[in-house]
């Protein structure tokens, strides 16, 4: 439960007194319908569990082959990192950088920062630099594009279907499983509760 408090809508700036929100409930802006606050029960424990699952899936996705190509009985494997690496070898530096950030760096930071923030909170204490990590997490999130990359892999498989036999690798399944886990972790993480726990001494106006 979160007590009644004054809030300004982040999308339309309307100042409003939000009534007491029960666990599992949400308050929406009376003018533009934006979600102002959402109260999620056991938010830190649930998000930490999802974060750990995401970490395991991310490691599996980057260690095992993504796709295996079979031509005349010969097998060739391709990993996620090979995508950016191959563009780099082609001399497409700028694209290689963009792919490197969106498929490797940002998802890794996404999962890493999420765990950095919620693991200590789930254990009932405040970890070091939690506020800074949480801010970074929020700015890195739009650039973590696991689900878009998955769609790209799917399209590539269809495009190459005429030329060769393509077998999905373990990394593909791990990456596919990572998408709903990361999406769920965004839903279970109660941002307001996180900030209040990270910095409880700040007075409200």
């Amino acid at each position: 439960m979160r007590g009644s408090h004054l809030i300004a809508c982040h999308d339309c700036d309307l100042l409003q007194q939000v009534p007491t929100v029960p666990a599992g409930g949400a308050a929406r802006c009376g003018r533009c319908d934006a979600v102002l606050t959402r109260v999620i029960p056991r938010t830190f424990e649930r998000t930490a569990a999802l974060g750990l699952a995401a970490l395991i899936l991310l490691i599996v996705a980057n260690v095992f082959p993504l796709l295996t190509l079979e031509i005349q009985g010969r097998l060739t494997h391709m990993s996620i990192v090979a995508g950016a690496w191959n563009l780099w070898l082609q001399g497409a530096d700028w694209l290689a950088g963009l792919v490197f950030v969106t498929t490797l760096i940002a998802p890794a930071l996404h999962v890493g920062l999420l765990l950095w923030v919620v693991l200590p909170l789930a254990g009932g204490r405040r970890g070091p630099a939690g506020a800074r990590a949480f801010r970074w997490l929020q700015s890195i999130r739009p650039w973590s594009m696991a689900e878009v990359f998955m769609l790209g892999v799917l399209v590539s498989m269809v495009k190459l279907a005429d030329l060769a036999v393509i077998v999905p690798g373990i990394a593909l399944w791990a990456f596919a499983a990572l998408i709903p886990v990361l999406a769920a972790s965004m839903v279970t993480l109660d941002a307001e509760e996180t900030w209040r726990t990270l910095a409880p001494e700040v007075p409200e106006p």
Binding site: L67, L69, I71, M78, G83, N86, L95, V148, L151, G152
Partner: peptide, 21 residues
């Protein structure tokens, strides 16, 4: 979601390279 075509080029290039297709 517009990034999808960039990823298609990425995966195609890497796969085709790996398979020497």
């Amino acid at each position: 979601w517009s990034m999808v075509d960039i990823f298609v080029v990425t995966v195609l290039a890497a796969l085709v390279q790996a398979g020497a297709l």
